[in-house]
Write a protein that binds this DNA or RNA. Structure first.
Length: 416
RNA sequence: GUGGGCGUAGCUCAGACAGGUAGAGCACCAGGUUGUGGCCCUGGUGGCCGCGGGUUCAAGUCCCGUCGCUCACCCCA
């Protein structure tokens, strides 16, 4: 064991049969995206560091201490993407995708990288399914995006979960709220050490503190909702009313804040039970000012990210297991093996999945292998069958066997 | 970055307190059936006991160091 090269910290191999579950989630997401008019984007994993510094916010934890940043051979500072929205927006602006008609609906999925201390549900390379809708500030779009998220989660049979929503307001609302909150906090004693620091650096974060004592103090803290300007309040109310109309159960969570600076107005998060401390399986919100922040035009937008690794942890183990119609060819002796190999290729041309063993193993061993590979049927080919021109076809579940003419075998198997 | 738990076979773990020939279950291979899987029985393959140093006649076991994994804080998907 010593000296073997291992995967680096926080990174992991995803192996079969687990990969089948991942495919099931991704297929479900793709279907739902198509239903809502979204198209896929495939983006680089590496971007200029500046892109993230400007979009996510230089003072956020992500940018200040969690990014994989390195100089390339020309000395440019590059970063492995810690999230996808910045890249999506960069690509949209660079390729002028914002110019088309209607709301631009895009999704992308793949690995993200953050240099954090790994724990349950948190990896340094993790995977997100990312949704972005650009070009409208209509509350209907907020509702539609959340409906889409819930549709995906429903399709993958996510169990007990809660949808938390809040409105962060526009920059003006946020400014007033921060002033009000700072004033409130400055009058309070007994905040935890972290919150004393956050009170100055990022007062919104104090709302998120998990300390029981801080929560008690915050009970009568000002809430964002009371600071929303008329426009933001109307927008928020409309979103909530639409969610209700379509039967989406949500919880207003006045303390919900997001870890990235670019969010405004609607913010939401889905938390699931059974995940330990890292229980957010999806999160998102509106980011109306981000395009301009990146030097683009005014481009209101909203999106979400699903944490695929976490989601998979709470989904049923049997997810993505389809019924098996695999055929196993058990051949005895060189001549039969040669014949079986040809038959195998014929079957595959017909779209019938099949396997055989290339070793000189006993029929017993081959039957055992067929069983463990989950074959629905096993074809037995030996000298006896080659002589008579008829193979033995065994149905594994019942043990029933019949003789089938070799020339008819491909047709019969294709019809099973 | 901080704290707790844990590193022994491919996997799950005994063995450590009281130092003395490295074990079990599962998995894998083979046999019990000269051509028939699952259940059962028998046998077999497989381990620098994370790594380095120390104590000792002798270390998986005691001591020191180190690396890794894991959970939690923090942060977030």
């Amino acid at each position: 064991m010593a000296g073997k090269i291992k995967a680096i910290r926080g990174m992991r191999d995803i192996l079969p049969p687990e990969t089948g579950r991942w495919q099931a989630v991704e297929n479900a997401a793709r279907e739902a995206f198509a239903l809502y008019g979204y198209r896929e984007l495939r983006l680089p994993l590496i971007e200029r560091t500046e892109l993230f510094a400007r979009s996510i916010g230089a003072d956020t934890d992500i940018v200040s201490k969690e990014m994989y940043t390195f100089p390339d051979r020309h000395g440019d500072s590059l970063t492995l993407r810690p999230e996808a929205t910045a890249s999506v927006l960069r690509a949209v602006l660079e390729n002028r995708l914002d110019q088309g008609a209607g709301v631009k609906k895009l999704y992308t999925l793949g690995p993200m990288f953050r240099y954090e201390r790994p724990q349950k549900g948190r990896y340094r390379q993790f995977h997100q399914i990312n949704c972005e809708a650009l070009g409208s500030d209509a509350p209907e779009l907020d509702a539609e995006v959340i409906l889409l998220l819930m549709e995906i989660l429903k399709r993958v049979q996510l169990g007990t979960s809660r949808l938390l929503v809040n409105s962060l307001g526009c920059p003006e609302c946020q400014k007033k709220f921060k002033e009000g909150l700072s004033l409130f906090l400055s009058q309070k004693q007994g905040l935890c050490e972290d919150c004393l620091r956050r009170r100055v650096t990022n007062p919104l974060r104090v709302l998120d503190c998990k300390s029981v004592h801080c929560k008690e103090i915050l009970k009568d803290a000002p809430v964002l909702k009371d600071y929303l300007c008329p426009d933001c309040a109307v927008h928020y109310a409309r979103v909530l009313s639409l969610l209700s109309r379509f039967g989406v159960t949500y919880e207003e969570q006045p303390r919900l804040v997001r870890g990235l600076d670019y969010y405004s107005r609607t913010a939401f998060e889905v938390v699931a039970v059974g995940l330990g401390a890292q229980d957010a399986v999806a999160g998102g919100g509106r980011y109306n000012g981000l395009a301009q922040e990146l030097g683009g035009p005014e481009l209101p937008a909203i999106g979400f990210a699903i944490g695929e690794d976490r989601l998979l942890e709470v989904l049923p183990p049997e997810l993505g297991q389809e019924k098996n119609r695999k055929i196993f060819l058990a051949a005895l002796g060189p001549a039969a093996r040669d014949q079986a190999f040809s038959l195998l290729q014929t079957l595959r041309r017909e779209g019938v999945p099949g396997e055989m063993d290339f070793g000189e193993r006993s029929l017993k061993a081959q039957m055992s292998l067929a069983d463990r590979l989950g074959a629905a049927y096993t074809v037995i080919l030996g000298d006896r069958e080659l002589e008579t021109g008829k193979a033995t076809l065994r149905r594994m579940a019942t043990g029933d066997q019949q003789e089938v003419s070799l020339s008819l075998l491909p047709m019969v198997l294709a019809g099973l």
